[in-house]
Design a protein around this nucleic acid. Structure first.
Lengths: 225, 225
DNA sequence: AATTGCGAAATTGTATACAATCTTTTCCTT
DNA sequence: AAGGAAAAGATTGTATACAATTTCGCAATT
């Protein structure tokens, strides 16, 4: 029997709202009124208020005293800027691992994701349903490296830097087969660099990898915004 | 007449508590009870609860549902890890500025801090009262660079990475004259690198600068913890 | 027509009452 | 005496009432 992680209304509301914000369900600058949200969520204002404050701290909402909360608008530049930050954070993660060498546990985890990636590419073209699989694989790869650093702040910031609408789940819908292949190559190079204890290379390739994703996003959003 | 920035009890409580936590006024793992804090702060539990949630989000408090909040303990490793993260963040800041070149405004701001630093070093030995002046100068230098990047997430993370007890105000009390001089040299080199549009050098020197501070802290806390 | 002032309505901020959960104590069983 | 169930107490979670502030509408004035 899986242990039901105990929770509170406040936490639940926070996560539901966060998901909706990341999915872009609220137009930018939409005002979020406490009573309206409370009714919608079927709870009182108290947990709503705590949620809003947290989401504002996460940068998803703007807040002004006595004026309430509104959906923070993200420009394309904001999004690219966030990628740049994430790139150095995850780059640092790879560097730290490369310096000290990978644990057997990490090797195993990463090899698994590399194999998953290969399999997904085998078919020649990724189907709709396989996007989710790729996304999971990708998340596992990046998170495994970060966790291994045991640098709490690094993990927190790297995770937080993904909390941005449009981006939150990696917009793989823009990806061509070629782009998927390149991402897979990056993963392999990063793995190789860490295996051979090449910190500079590991760091650099991870930055390259992350900024490549930013480039694709940028190309597909340019002008449209 | 200076405009009184309007605020709320919740925000005030948050900042007071944050300051106290950063000053290390609460022993690690101290349980923070809402009613006790409410009485102490002369407000009801409502603003207290919102404050605690925010401070937990900032990593200063631990939280468990239905169990409340406690003061998060920081190991020496935690602190050094935070410095490492900050070093790459501020390094990125310098890199970005070096790439695009400094604005006149930034040049002016930084030159001012460089001059302040020189003056403080002139006297040969920094007096007690001059620590605060140095701290201000140092904060101005680092913040000016960050702000100029116009990368919101970068600024937020870099600021947040300083929110750690013991470290929060730069423990300049450990600094020898030699250490102050070296810090000043770093500042000058960073300025020079950005002026001459040398991104690698600017990035590297800032990382060196931040990690040097970490080294001094480490040497003085080693064993003591 | 634009602007200012004022009052009503709406919205956020805070206190408090009550509910749910966790912790401690008590007391019973073995 | 040890262990454990159950009740009492303490603490956190949530709802709601009230206070403070802002927003909106409507005149009155220029």
């Amino acid at each position: 029997m899986t242990q039901q992680a105990k929770s509170t209304r406040s936490i639940n509301v926070t996560e539901i709202l966060r998901e909706q914000l990341l999915q872009g369900e609220f137009p930018p600058n939409t005002r979020l009124q406490e009573t309206a949200l409370a009714e919608r969520m079927q709870v009182s204002r108290t947990p709503i208020r705590e949620s809003l404050r947290v989401l504002a701290k996460d940068g998803l909402l703007d807040y002004a005293p006595n004026r309430g909360y509104s959906v923070r608008p993200f420009s394309l530049d904001d999004i690219v800027a966030a990628f740049r930050v994430r790139s150095v954070l995850e780059g640092l993660g790879c560097r730290l691992i490369a310096e000290r060498g990978m644990s057997d546990n990490l090797k195993q985890s990463l090899l698994k994701t590399l194999n998953q990636g290969e399999e997904l590419l085998q078919s020649g073209q990724l189907e709709r349903g396989e996007y989710d699989e790729w996304r999971e694989m990708n998340k596992d790869f990046h998170l495994a490296i970060l966790m291994e650093t045991e640098n709490d702040l690094l993990v927190r910031f790297a995770k937080a830097s993904r909390n941005i609408p449009i981006v939150f789940n990696g917009s793989f819908k823009w990806y061509t087969l070629r782009a998927f292949q390149r991402a897979q190559d990056h993963h392999q190079a990063i793995y190789s660099a860490m295996l051979n204890q090449q910190p500079d290379r590991a760091d650099f390739m991870m930055q390259e990898h992350v900024m490549h994703a930013a480039d694709i996003l940028k190309q597909n959003l340019e002008g449209a915004e």
